[in-house]
Design a protein around this nucleic acid. Structure first.
Lengths: 197, 197
DNA sequence: GCATAAATTCAACATCTGTTGAACTATGGC
DNA sequence: GCCATAGTTCAACAGATGTTGAATTTATGC
């Protein structure tokens, strides 16, 4: 084992970025409580004290690594609105699955895994899914009962995410995007524009 | 604070049961990792060592308190099959919400909160929802693509459970049973008997 | 080049965790 | 009534965890 020399490293190594990257992985796999500062630091190849140095503590690192959602809600919203309203459900499912598949579902799993210990995560979920996406979408569509519809959409999205990315129930976990879209999009569409009574 | 006397208590006090009850509450609120043996014992009004005495350790208590599902799947299945097929979705949602509402959603929240740390919990979720309920139900109905349909049903159930019982998104978290049924049952019905292509 | 500041490791701490063994006390069979 | 036993508390341990301060090394400004 090559023991590290003390003191400042040669330029070019970005410890901060390495920590964030490592933290993403470990938080994803273990959740907030299960992930230890030492494990993250080890994966980043630096000392645990660096977490406090750069982020003020474990919580600060978590905020940087996980709560910084990797997409711009308004960008997604624009994309979802681009097209006929009666295909919005389809676009939602396709966008969602494509985007999360691309990250290996990791960020989503991390969010869910951390709902336990971090109340802020529940709020992150809510402000992202419900408020930033669905409520605005429904406003543009001009739907009624927007609040209820938004939470209904959330049930389908969250449920899909859990089954596909967290607990990996087959065959849904491995089904290709288009099949998933065909299977789920009509249900989403009903929550958006259908009759709820 | 009335300090406890050592030694055996007077008859009539069931420490084991008190521990299970307390464990349910604490596991529900904190999840497996977040719940400490000391906290559970304190809530039960006994010493932490009792957990090891009665259950061999924290894990044993968890198995008794949470994984012992409070319902008989075959009983539920019978209830879901009792009536016209085209109303099965409705019965599912009504049964589900009624049952979990009655427990305050606690057991469900505990399951989800523990998906993180206990892989067995994911399996418990799967064997309960997917295998014991939906797959059998779909077999009775005589549907095709049973595996896919079962997991689709699971997405809606799990998503509803999370939104209503874990993260408490309003208004869905507080909506009365019949409104929830009307809103969601048709979607469930489509996963059971509708066209997925 | 030199002094200051920044980055990094290391050792240690305080706290909390699950578990264990010993000490104590009521119960129940005889 | 005696006594083995089951139930209970207590004190303590070993391990892990987040955090902190000192020590050390490199980079940067002048």
């Amino acid at each position: 084992m090559n023991q590290k020399r003390r003191g400042r490293r040669a330029a070019g190594e970005d410890t901060r970025a390495a920590l964030i990257a490592a933290a993403r992985e470990v938080f994803v796999e273990k959740g907030y409580d299960g992930a230890t500062v030492r494990a993250i630091a080890a994966k980043a190849g630096v000392d645990a004290a660096m977490v406090n140095h750069w982020f003020g503590g474990k919580e600060g690192l978590f905020a940087q690594a996980v709560l910084q959602l990797p997409f711009d809600p308004s960008e997604i919203l624009k994309r979802l609105l681009d097209g006929p309203v009666e295909q919005a459900g389809e676009r939602i499912i396709r966008t969602f699955v494509t985007v999360w598949d691309a990250t290996g579902g990791g960020t989503f799993a991390a969010l869910i895994r951390s709902v336990t210990s971090q109340p802020e995560v529940a709020n992150a979920l809510k402000s992202f899914f419900v408020n930033a996406i669905f409520k605005n979408l429904l406003t543009e569509i001009g739907a009624e009962q927007r609040e209820l519809r938004a939470t209904l959409c959330a049930t389908q999205m969250v449920g899909l995410g859990i089954v596909r990315y967290v607990v990996h129930f087959e065959p849904l976990a491995s089904t290709d995007v288009e099949t998933v879209v065909k299977a789920i999009a009509p249900n989403m569409q009903r929550y958006l524009t259908g009759d709820l009574n």
